[in-house]
Design a protein around this nucleic acid. Sequence first.
DNA 1: TCTATTAATTGATATTTATCATGAACAGGC
DNA 2: GCCTGTTCATGATAAATATCAATTAATAGA
Lengths: 231, 231
Amino acid sequence: MSSGNLIVSCEKCTRKWKNFQHLTKSELQLINENRYEATFKPGEIMLKQGSPTSNALFMANGMAKTYIEGINGKNFIMNIALPGMLIMGPGAYVNSRHTYSVAAITSVQACFIGFDIFKQLVRVNGAFAESLIEDISAKSLRSHIRMVNLSQKRMSGRLAEVLLYFSDEVFHNDEYEMILSRQELGEMTSMAKECVVRILKELEDSGVIYSDLSKIKILDRKKLIQISEKG
Amino acid sequence: MSSGNLIVSCEKCTRKWKNFQHLTKSELQLINENRYEATFKPGEIMLKQGSPTSNALFMANGMAKTYIEGINGKNFIMNIALPGMLIMGPGAYVNSRHTYSVAAITSVQACFIGFDIFKQLVRVNGAFAESLIEDISAKSLRSHIRMVNLSQKRMSGRLAEVLLYFSDEVFHNDEYEMILSRQELGEMTSMAKECVVRILKELEDSGVIYSDLSKIKILDRKKLIQISEKG
DNA sequence: TCTATTAATTGATATTTATCATGAACAGGC
DNA sequence: GCCTGTTCATGATAAATATCAATTAATAGA
């Protein structure tokens, strides 16, 4: 993690959190004056679970994984953080501790903004507060869906779901770089890494996807959706 | 579901949502004038997943289960709604559809409040908005923890966790009525009803709990916590 | 380029969990 | 009280998933 400002200002930033549109010029200025830019190398930890929520984090460039450090050192990967996203766990408004850790996958450029300032703006600007609630709600909705997926689907369904997630939400393409290792795919779908390998092979053998070490190509989207939905 | 007001006013209601403390007198009055009281018999559905989020729901008396209707008609029970709680899923601020269903377990008394009014108060009252964010965050935090529990623990750990949940969060007592059927306990822990029976028996045989058809008594809390945490 | 280290793969096996079939216990309606 | 439908309980079996061990492939440094 190094610092020094590369981004000129929030106002001109093309990757800014879209909810900043609800702020007045002077409010956005306040954010701009109190942000701290940082860049991370692949693998570096950006936020550590359990540490104080002194800052909200905004992704400007690159990709990161958000994950909960669970039982016996096992991780549970929740999702991929992308440019324009706010990273602020529920702990910020509950116990002032980060609920999860965040680690860079590619190189990442991000801005930290003091939580006291952020919270103050939420209090005085109703539209901004509402947009934050919308953001939190969307994340919560997603986690509800994931919970059902995890508890009601078998392995192939869970893996299919994640492959579609990468296609639809991360890369917006049927062909993409698999930026997670097999181990990490397992941490995202609650399965052993060996099983990830086996199911990927099954999907490839049945012509649903092409898969090599670092690439995934969805060949039969309908069938993949069906596998994902059927469980 | 029958109607007719039994509760005199929000101001005097002892079971009101604690976040109403942030409202002014006239704002609370507005809530009071626009609420619709309802009582439900055990088993009746109070909110149906997928239906429009026209109202927020407040529990005044009794207990209800909130559950997602998942794949192949399988339900996933999220938690038990108790007096004083707000029931408002993330859908309210995302797609205006209820994310989950709610069904009465005991007889339930509850108040519906039009979502437009509720939303308006969130917009104009910063402290109220903040308290809503806190409420949502607490629920979100809980669901994160549950997600890890579900994906990283084996059956006995998952069931132990739920038994402790009832003791700590629902009844505040080591001895309580098991208001859910074995089937429903399975829907809460992602296991088959037969397995619920077997694990309960195991826990009883090892002296950790006493269990009969409708009652649970925690005999060795330390051991139960250990089982829950170890997975 | 070579080497050390890590990740991916594969097969065999053990463990965990679900399903099926059956009978017992229980609860509500009349 | 007695019938009847539902839940609970139990054993046997099948299916799903994890673990272990061994090998191969890829990658980063020196």
